[in-house]
Design a protein around this nucleic acid. Structure first.
Length: 758
DNA sequence: CGCACGTGGTTTTTT
DNA sequence: ACCACGTGCG
């Protein structure tokens, strides 16, 4: 049995799988069989009897990855994976909090706020607190709260030295109090609350530490501080309250945060214990860390080796995915990054093709080129689903889509609005949430007047005042009100009693019908008709989703379904089996692979993105992003860029991405005349022979005779090379806007600035 | 109360 | 160019 598990593994993979029960860090390059090693390790541990399925905790970031792991595992072992703790950080924390909701001071039916829900909760709160949303943009407050929690900090633990931050901390505290009143938790709260539960409740902590002998983590480079703390706690490396020397800076203040009510047995009452230490098996790739912008801390990899005394880090460096040239390009590019753990991917494959580079005049031309190439590939027998079009930002998909539609090529755009995030679905779910938990003000506000039932802003304001006055929830206030509001209360009550005994899909059906949602969309006419029809379809699909959920899950309660909807807003889309191109951002391509990959929009300022240049280490993260993009391709890779592109409704002019320059010429095959490209970055010398700069778009007031016109490439002593993106005034006052490759965009007075046309 | 129009802001994304 | 949100009018 073991031998069949291990067959086909290379020595490093095999060593990783067969490690003794100790903590380990597996540095797994792109395409090196990371998931395979992880799942085989689990299968190995179970089949050798080292641990029972019960003793395994396996954590991933996405539901997709978790599912993949379960699927592979059940293929390897004849075991029931249902009882196993395999899931996402959020999913597992949710599971623990449900199981111990009382200890965690939560109602059994606590609801989960997705980021949209969270934002509206914050807006509502800020209004109630009379906070100026000009000075404190709700989105900023939201990210302040989330990132604080992701650092493991409660409001009273955040260091605030200025009035501005202090105010945000106040909002943070009030926000947590509001959530607690309403019985809801946001995403980061799931993690923090679970962490606190375990750290304060010794009995529970020891129970789980004892249980989980092996903890396995996928994509470890993406863990944030809180997630790592959580892992350490479960693994028995608890920063027990007495022990010092922890790297985390917990305030010494007592944790009497807004979310109080923990039994006193928690804090400080911990006895000295020698709880068993679990083995933490972490798999990751620092070169693929692309989520630092949202709190991921690559440093966790080094910390892990210190905290867990990991003696040898196993590197998986053989790539089974790409041809040599593609891999070499990736290697060369990433070698420009500092602070790498160090790793060099190799392949037994031959070099394969060169990378195909294309310089287009405009974004539209770029798309047209891509369409032509795809048609060619298709005629050569490559399936569309084996081709991916990658871009840095979502806005770039439009032009590509347009070209694909015209050409009649089918495609799927990944990312964007997901099923459970659609407006009509959120409305429908809000009814269910309110039925489950009447304290959920968010849900109440969403539907109290949708479909419209004559309860306007005025009435709602009155409700909110009444609720505040009596410090109750909106529901309680509504229950005391009369007229239309009481009709609404009666509606919810009747929905609740009518569906009490029904199975989930029928509950759904009943609520859709009797809430008036169906009728509301059926009554839409005119321009909104099409949209309404689609919404009706989605609502119908929601009933199907409920049926499917009941079919697939043991726990088919309403609470469980609502949790599923929040935590797995996921790709509930049909058409997966169709042969269609994949369009997605580079971020969402991580973990995938394709025969052919087009990396589009390789322009300075776009990829690497302008905003990244300001942040510390921002360029390195962009480079890792490029590394991820390159390593998605198995056989063929296209790199394209455009001299001009429509951006934010304006034609903007960019230069070829510096990442292109970082790739060895020998690996590249230019499909467009190379000198055009060379002009854009190789030499700053004015060249009489070089073609005149393109003069796209325009509306530029400058005369044609002037050398300073939009699109002109220029060189500046201090700022280096750039492109003119704007011209203003004339004569002595003339100013030009130049988008510099290094220094960003600047306005320069022509009289003083020493500009040279390139 | 509900609709029409205006304004601002647009990197990346999972849970 | 486009979308989400907020204000002002019927």
């Amino acid at each position: 049995m073991n031998s069949s598990l291990l067959s086909g593994l290379n020595p490093e993979q095999r060593a990783a799988v067969e490690l003794p029960a100790q903590s380990a860090l597996i540095l797994a390059g792109a395409g090196s069989g990371k998931t395979r090693v992880l799942t085989t390790r689990i299968a190995y541990l179970i089949s050798t009897g080292a641990v029972s399925p019960h003793g395994i905790l396996a954590v991933t970031f996405t539901n997709k990855a978790a599912k993949e792991m379960v699927t592979r595992l059940s293929a390897m072992l004849p075991i029931n994976t249902r009882g196993m703790w395999i899931g996402t950080f959020h999913g597992l924390c949710n599971r623990m909090l449900r199981a111990h909701h009382r200890e965690a001071n939560l109602p059994q039916t606590f609801q989960i706020l997705d980021s949209g829900d969270q934002l509206s909760a914050i807006k509502r709160l800020m209004k109630a607190m009379n906070v100026d949303d000009e000075k404190f943009p709700p989105r900023e407050v939201q990210s302040f709260i989330s990132s604080s929690k992701e650092q493991g900090l409660r409001a009273n633990e955040v260091e605030a030295y200025d009035p501005y931050t202090r105010r945000k901390v106040e909002i943070f505290a009030e926000y947590d109090a509001q959530c607690q009143r309403e019985g809801v938790v946001d995403f980061s709260e799931l993690l923090l609350r679970c962490y606190e539960l375990l750290s304060r409740n010794a009995a529970l902590r020891e129970h789980y530490q004892e249980r989980f002998k092996h903890i396995l983590v996928d994509e470890f480079q993406d863990t944030n501080k809180l997630q790592y703390q959580w892992l350490k706690l479960l693994a028995g490396h608890s920063p027990s309250p007495q022990s010092s020397g922890e790297t985390t800076s917990h305030s010494t203040k007592p944790a009497s945060g807004p979310v109080t009510g923990y039994p006193a047995s928690g804090r400080g009452g911990d006895r000295e214990r020698h709880s068993s230490t679990s083995a933490l098996f972490a798999v990751g790739d620092d070169d693929q860390s692309i989520y630092a912008f949202r709190g991921a801390n690559v440093g966790n990899m080094q910390e892990l080796t210190r905290d867990f005394q990991v003696e040898n880090v196993i590197k998986l460096e053989q790539n089974y995915r790409s041809h040599g040239n593609i891999l070499e390009a990736a290697n060369v590019l990433i070698s420009n990054n500092r602070n790498r753990l160090g790793k060099n991917l190799w392949t037994a494959e031959n070099g394969g093709e060169q990378l195909r580079v294309y310089e287009a005049a405009t974004d539209v031309d770029e798309a047209a080129f891509i369409v032509d190439e795809i048609k060619q590939l298709k005629s050569e027998g490559i399936n569309l689903r084996e081709i991916a079009l990658l871009y840095r930002s979502n806005a770039q998909s439009r032009v590509l889509e347009h070209a694909l539609v015209s050409a009649g090529l089918s495609y799927r755009v990944y990312g964007g609005l997901r099923f459970f995030e659609r407006q009509e679905i959120k409305h429908a779910l809000a009814y269910l949430r309110l039925m489950e938990n009447t304290d959920d003000d968010n849900a109440l506000l969403r539907i109290i007047n949708f479909p419209t039932r004559g309860i306007g802003a005025r009435s709602i304001e009155q409700l909110q005042e009444a609720a505040k006055m009596n410090s109750t929830t909106l529901w309680d206030a509504a229950a005391r009100a009369g007229g239309k509001v009481s009709a609404f209360v009666a509606l919810i009550e009747s929905l609740r009693s009518a569906t009490r005994e029904l199975p989930l899909p029928e509950i759904m059906d009943h609520v859709l019908e009797h809430s008036g949602l169906i009728a509301h969309y059926q009554n839409e006419t005119g321009v909104k008709k099409r949209e309404a029809e689609e919404r009706l379809e989605n609502l119908n699909e929601l009933v199907n989703a409920a049926a499917l959920f009941v079919h697939e899950n043991e726990d088919d309660s309403l609470t469980s379904f609502l949790t599923h909807a929040s935590l797995e807003a996921g790709e509930h889309q049909a058409g997966d089996q169709d042969d269609a191109l994949h369009l997605m951002t580079v971020h969402s391509a991580k973990g995938l692979e394709f025969h052919t990959v087009f990396i589009t929009g390789l322009e300075e300022g776009l990829f690497p993105h302008q905003n990244s240049q300001r942040e510390d280490g921002g360029l390195d993260e962009e480079r890792r992003l490029m590394y991820v993009a390159i390593t998605r391709a198995r056989r063929r890779l296209y790199l394209s860029f455009a001299q001009s592109r429509m951006l934010h409704g304006q034609v903007s002019y960019g230069m070829a991405s510096s990442f292109l320059r970082e790739l060895p010429e020998g690996l590249l095959h230019w499909l467009t005349p190379r000198f055009v490209a060379r002009k854009s970055f190789d030499s700053f010398l004015p060249d009489a022979a070089s073609a005149p700069a393109p003069s796209f778009g325009g509306g530029a007031p400058s005369a044609h005779s002037s050398p300073w016109r939009i699109g002109q490439r220029v060189f500046h002593q201090k700022f280096g090379e750039g492109v003119i993106t704007g011209v203003e005034g004339g004569g002595a006052d003339a100013r030009v806007q130049v988008n510099f490759k290094r220094a960003g965009s600047k306005w320069l007075a022509l009289e003083y600035a020493k500009l040279t046309a390139v």
